[in-house]
Design a protein around this nucleic acid. Structure first.
Lengths: 163, 163
DNA sequence: TTAAATGCAAATTATTTGCAGAAGC
DNA sequence: GCTTCTGCAAATAATTTGCATTTAA
């Protein structure tokens, strides 16, 4: 089976990000272009280090410092989300454009990250926040869980055979 | 107005923690005693560094390394919870004994941490996790929010006057 | 007695930053 | 031309770890 990943940036995303850059009076550089290209050409999560590698594949002159300086800008634009899943490195998630409210489940058995969305939880959280006298700005829901399939049958398609 | 904080450990907590220590074949040392005393004598959250200061008030020989080595043990015991609120330091929360399922709201205006508990969210999260084929092990809900009172009246009792 | 626990100081490691040169506008 | 942006290398800072010594059981 071959899985197809998005290997190019959606035009709408490109438009929005360069709109943001222009609105903020930021300059367009080959390094930024490469980082942006790398940041929004895959649907998976990545670390700053992984983004550096991907950006260098587009433009070899990209440095680690520039990646670290560009990431907060992308996060501020609202198109990329910083994801703290409790590891020592931050993860970045480019999937908030299509699913702005999704949450994450992390499998304790195979470390797989499953994204999910639930309107009810979202609404409940907003209600509680209001009741406490606040207005929600940013919400994080993260569930660490064990795989039922693995427990039942001793096998899970996503579990590495030996690690 | 004077606020009273708990300045001693509840006997039930002391019993449970030493039960854990014994069950795990861990040794009882004056440093561990001091760290435990410091860890469960306040209702507020604290960093490793703050715990070190508090533990040294009980037993001056406590070292930073021992604090860092003891904290994971207390977390494993289930009586203390590690709290990642997105700062560069971890926070530790001793309030999970009375409220095992509580979540956190962080005020973006005054940095106050408000603890809340909601059965409905809890249940919904469990349902979704099950539907996805998992069993929940650890859940984290964190809401960053702005203060309505402050926006409405320009004043909030918890907002520092000038910072 | 013997394995576990400790303090110290050095190591680790993701991220940040100062600075001098390069490049966008 | 002026300011922003960049790469490099050094700094930062929370946490971890190696090791010699101490201590609980």
């Amino acid at each position: 089976m071959i899985l197809w990943y998005v290997e190019w940036m959606e035009p709408a995303v490109r438009e929005r990000i360069y709109e943001f850059i222009q609105a903020r009076g930021l300059r367009r550089t080959s390094q930024r272009d490469a980082i942006i290209e790398a940041a929004f050409s895959h649907a998976d999560h990545y670390t700053a280090e992984e983004l550096l590698v991907r950006a260098r594949a587009v433009e070899p002159s990209v440095s680690r410092a520039t990646v670290y300086r560009t990431l907060p800008l992308l996060v501020e634009s609202g198109l990329l989300k910083e994801l703290d899943l409790g590891k020592d490195q931050m993860l970045y998630d480019p999937n908030y454009i299509d699913h702005p409210r999704h949450s994450h489940l992390i499998c304790l058995d195979c470390s797989r990250i499953v994204e999910f969305e639930d309107r009810n939880i979202d609404t409940l959280e907003n209600c509680i926040t209001k009741r406490l006298g606040f207005s929600p700005a940013k919400k994080l829901t993260r569930i660490d869980a064990s795989c039922d399939e693995l427990r039942r049958s001793g096998f899970c398609a996503h579990k590495p055979v030996s690690v």
